[in-house]
């Protein structure tokens, strides 16, 4: 894969939201005219396919993603060098301290998606998981949240936080809701005819209830945006 190509690295959270709400075909729909690829690291494949495939309750969702991998819509790529993942984990998990203890915030899976994007020279990440996204985009707001949740004695290690922000600098994050909105703009809901706006709003709520971190206010903004276009 060429460095800097217009591909997007996906975290498991977005694939879970899309499959649980039965919108995985939005990926097929968008992939038709996409020069890049939807890429996942092996840990995401494990979380979304290998493991849930053995659990009856989740097997169908796992098979939907397995099929999209088989069909070449989603590509699994392994990190060649794990040092970036380790650095991301270290910086993120030693940036905030409560009661003198470092708050271990991120997990290997999230760090691996960021590291893979970095290694491939990609800056676009599909992630419904909210912590990683807000930490990378608005670390001060995130610190305010932690301070509220952990009782106000939060200490920030600025050097480690800067280290983390340096690793994710220039990255752009999207949620499954934006993928669905883009698919809508390109005709994915057209067969709903004059009900398509209502269908989109219902679909965004379905994503929200499946765990996509989109607020009601943002769903309202999305509805206004499509009316304006």
């Amino acid at each position: 894969m060429a460095r800097g190509s217009p591909s997007i690295v996906c975290d498991s959270s977005s694939l879970i939201s899309l499959t649980d709400s039965c919108f995985v075909h939005a990926i097929y729909f968008l992939a038709k005219n996409f020069r890049g690829k939807f890429i996942i690291p092996p840990s995401v494949e494990y979380e979304c396919v290998t493991h849930p495939r053995k659990v009856k309750m989740h097997a169908l969702h796992a098979l939907r993603i397995a099929r999209s991998i088989r069909d070449g819509m989603v590509e699994v790529l392994e990190l060649e060098d794990y040092s970036a993942e380790k650095k991301i984990l270290f910086y993120a998990n030693n940036s905030f301290f409560s009661r003198g203890r470092p708050l271990e915030l991120l997990h290997r899976g999230e760090a691996e998606a960021l590291a893979l994007a970095s290694e491939l020279g990609l800056r676009d990440i599909l992630i419904d998981e909210r912590t990683t996204r807000v930490l990378a985009e608005q670390p001060r707001e995130y610190a305010g949240h932690l301070s509220k949740e952990f009782g106000g004695d939060l200490r920030i290690d600025e050097r480690n936080l800067d280290g983390f922000l340096g690793m994710v600098s220039g990255m752009r994050f999207y949620r499954s809701s934006e993928i669905l909105l883009l698919a809508y703009e390109r005709g994915y809901f057209d067969d709903y005819g004059n009900m398509k706006e209502e269908a989109l709003e219902a679909a965004l709520y379905k994503l929200k209830y499946s765990g996509c971190a989109i607020t009601e206010n943002e769903i309202g903004q999305a509805a206004a945006m499509i009316r304006e276009r």
Binding site: L103, L106, H107, E110, E129, R130, T131, T132, L146, E149
Partner: peptide
């Protein structure tokens, strides 16, 4: 834990 600010994976 997730609402408090830990990541989903954590």
């Amino acid at each position: 834990f997730y609402a408090k600010g830990l990541s989903l994976g954590r």
